[in-house]
Design a protein around this nucleic acid. Structure first.
Length: 468
RNA sequence: UCCGUGGUAGCUCAGCGGUAGAGCGGUCGCCUGUUAAGCGAUUGGUCGUAGGUUCGAUCCCUACCCACGGAGCCA
């Protein structure tokens, strides 16, 4: 029964009057530190509801010696006591303990988290415990708030959440290496007479993989519901060892019928600004902590994004800026070649000093489904480039004319038999439409100011790492 | 995958061809309200793995593994 009386530490710290100064309260949480002497003990308790701890003051005489000894960093306790205004500095209120129940001890010699700060590299090795740190508490609360805000934004704007499949039979999504899904015994798969593997005997009767994108199915939904979005896990089997890539990550992909490229840009910009505003309004304590501990310009950067218009220009204009910059780049920047990270950084961070949306890329460096421009050379792709992290959104207006889509698909050597269903949307009631993809963890990287993507997802999956 | 840097105590690091050091943590003691508390004492290591050179290797050489940073791929 006691369980239902538990107060969240967030509520007591943020709004002590509502609980009542002087009233009895019960809190439950994990001990961050214990200080004191033989008369009085100060316990900093955290329950994850807020980054701040509540101070428990315990008159040592009133409690069993063994109990007090077992209250160590990392242990879990329930405390009933009086909520009072704190005479000490550093906190408004504290709890004078009357009853302390020990739920779980944490052996001080083996519990890996100390009171002091740890490196993020070390914390990655103890991902089962790192949610108990200030940093990961903050990141995980922000991550939650952003997931909620994404659904809120789309719901409030008339979009429907479409669940696209995680297992796909198409290997033509064209976004990188895929993870095979099979029930075969890998030591002894059924073989055909010519020695090749007989996938007709596999679970789905054909080769299947984990999805690398929900976009193609998203387009099917948009051709009926007009405005849809996906938000789900995505898998890339690329051997990418960088602070910006995961093998398993979450992606948001809105797809909109009747949107042309400009509408697509407007939506992307408004969407990102909404999410960042939401974080500033709802996660301020956590952002403030991250600002102080990791990135002194975080709050300022977030506010500046909300208050500036993104710069919009074409790929061709960007190349022109690079050629006139006088800057020395490691890689060349000729029309027709893809922009390198250093080029994007120059344009965003040095030239414009704000987010940039680039459009109208050469068709040969972009996917088959992008709408072809009349010049015959470029397509209506759109990349939103952010300071610090580069491409945060990639999207395009889609090619809705069957013949153009088909010829492009053939040019790029894709087997149309794998995509017959996709092509049919252009046969039956085709419509101009657009969409984009937002990497959820890239968004969280930007919002939290963290620098490694492995630190913005609870349990990162990367090459050679699937622990936890 | 390529390039670079690194791997020494639980953590963060220093060190050096001659059997390993600091700070923090932990433990014990002291201190009647502390704020990453303070003070004193103490504990703690196959020096990433496998070979090689050498009288002797944590140190030099080779290979491999892992981590981090940059690049590519991309979100």
């Amino acid at each position: 029964m006691d369980y239902f009386l538990r107060k969240k530490i967030k509520d007591l710290l943020k709004n002590p009057e509502s609980a009542g100064i002087g009233s009895d309260v019960t809190v439950k949480g994990w001990v961050r530190t214990k200080r004191g002497n033989k008369n009085v003990a100060f316990i900093a308790l955290n329950d994850g509801s807020i980054i701040h701890n509540i101070q428990i003051v315990a008159d040592v005489q009133k409690f069993d010696d063994e109990l007090m000894r077992q209250i160590t960093t990392g242990s879990c306790i329930s405390v009933k006591g009086k909520l009072i205004e704190s005479p000490g500095s550093g906190q408004k209120v504290e709890i004078h303990a009357e009853i302390i129940e020990l739920y779980g001890t944490a052996d001080a010699e083996t519990y890996p988290l100390q009171k002091k700060g740890h490196t993020l590299e070390f914390l990655r090795e103890i991902a089962h415990l790192r949610p108990r740190t200030n940093t990961f508490g903050a990141v995980l609360r922000i991550r939650h708030a952003m997931a909620y805000a994404i659904h809120k934004y789309f719901n409030d704007n008339g979009f429907y959440y479409l669940h696209t499949p995680i297992i796909t039979g198409s290997d033509a999504e064209g976004a990188g290496a895929m993870f095979r899904v099979t029930t075969f015994d890998l030591d002894n798969p059924p073989k055909k007479e010519d020695g090749s593997i007989d996938f007709t005997q596999d679970f789905f009767g054909k080769p299947t993989n984990l999805t690398v994108s929900g976009q193609l199915e998203g387009e099917l939904g948009a051709m009926a519901l007009s405005l849809v979005y996906t938000f789900g896990p995505t898998f890339r089997a690329e051997n990418s060892n960088t602070p910006r890539h995961l093998a398993e990550f979450w992606m948001i992909e809105p797809e909109m019928a009747f949107y042309e490229i400009k509408d697509n840009m407007d939506l992307a910009e408004d969407f990102l600004k909404f999410l960042i505003s939401y974080a500033l309004e709802n996660c301020f304590d956590d952002l403030e902590f991250l600002n102080n501990m990791y990135d002194k310009e975080l709050l300022e950067r977030l506010r500046s994004i909300v208050n500036t218009d993104f710069e919009r220009l074409t790929y061709t204009e960007a190349i022109d800026i690079l050629q006139k910059s006088g800057e020395k780049f490691e890689f060349p920047h000729n029309w027709g070649s893809d922009l390198q990270a250093e080029h994007e950084r120059y344009i965003v961070e040095k030239h414009f000093k704000k987010p940039v949306i680039l459009t109208d890329y050469p068709k040969d460096i972009k996917a088959f489904y992008m709408k072809q421009n009349d010049d015959g050379k470029t397509v209506r792709g759109m990349d939103v480039l952010f300071p610090r992290i580069g491409e945060i959104i990639g999207g395009s207006q889609r090619e809705e004319v069957y013949e153009k889509l088909y010829s492009r698909l053939k040019e790029m050597g894709i087997n149309e038999k794998d995509l017959w269903w996709y092509l049919e949307t252009r046969k039956f009631g085709t419509a101009p439409h657009s969409g984009f993809g937002l990497g959820f963890e890239r968004l969280i990287l930007f919002v939290t100011g963290m620098s490694n993507i492995r630190d913005v997802i609870p349990f990162p999956r990367t090459p050679m790492n699937a622990e936890f």
